[in-house]
């Protein structure tokens, strides 16, 4: 059946704004982790100030979805796509907030001597960014196989978070002066793990959007 052209144009515009937001969120995760690693406070401050574009997109995308639902009464795939967009929008905004949290921890961490050489946290940052990127790609390409790969990656991130915690616990027990900076590193690993959870949510929404399957909260699955 011939698609309703101007509705289709609006859906495409919604998708492109959502991708723009995803790109911004991903970049902010990258920058916040970089700030932590290089200990550049001016750079970190720039990251801290840069949340506004994401917040503006958050509101704009919600309004677009609201109008599409109100004025076009979408059905089936289109309905699922718009509901998914509302949820993905929330996840991306939270990712932006978590990037701010990471930058705040990085700012505090930079005021202490480094606890250790950072290996696992940058790796967690790479994985979280990769999950976000793949989740958004799976959204664009309507690719449930790629979405499923995102779900599978979440376990790696969880395992790394546990490892970071155990390792830093050892440092803290040996040298109480490391407690404060080590806690910030633990917080960062927690934030990165949460970013992975948001990427997972997005991937689940993509699977729902494409195949109408709800894969959330299934025992023995990825979560």
């Amino acid at each position: 059946m011939e698609r309703v052209r101007h509705f289709q144009e609006e859906l495409e515009a919604l998708q492109s704004r959502l991708l723009e937001m995803g790109g911004l969120a991903e970049e902010r995760v990258r920058a916040s982790v970089q700030g932590l690693v290089v200990r550049d406070t001016a750079f970190i401050d720039k990251v801290l100030r840069g949340d506004e574009p994401i917040n503006e997109l958050h509101i704009e995308i919600d309004n677009r979805c609201f109008m599409l639902l109100a004025l076009h009464q979408p059905m089936a795939t289109d309905l699922r796509a718009i509901v998914a967009a509302v949820k993905i929008n929330t996840d991306l905004e939270r990712v932006g907030d978590l990037a701010v949290n990471i930058a705040e921890a990085a700012r505090r961490y930079a005021s202490h001597p480094p606890v250790k050489k950072l290996i696992d946290i940058p790796q967690m940052g790479d994985i979280a960014q990769g999950m976000l990127r793949d989740a958004l790609d799976s959204f664009v390409r309507r690719d449930t196989v790629l979405a499923q790969q995102v779900l599978n990656q979440d376990d790696i991130l969880d395992a790394l978070k546990t490892q970071v915690f155990r390792e830093l616990l050892t440092y803290m027990l040996h040298d109480p002066t490391t407690v404060e900076p080590a806690l910030d590193l633990i917080l960062v690993s927690r934030h990165l793990e949460r970013i992975g959870d948001h990427a997972t949510n997005i991937a689940e929404d993509v699977i729902f959007m494409v195949s109408a399957l709800d894969v959330r909260h299934q025992p023995g699955q990825h979560q």
Partner: peptide, 11 residues
């Protein structure tokens, strides 16, 4: 985007 519904601020 050539044909666009205006995006209002709901507030």
């Amino acid at each position: 985007m050539s044909a666009s519904i205006p995006i209002p601020s709901l507030a």
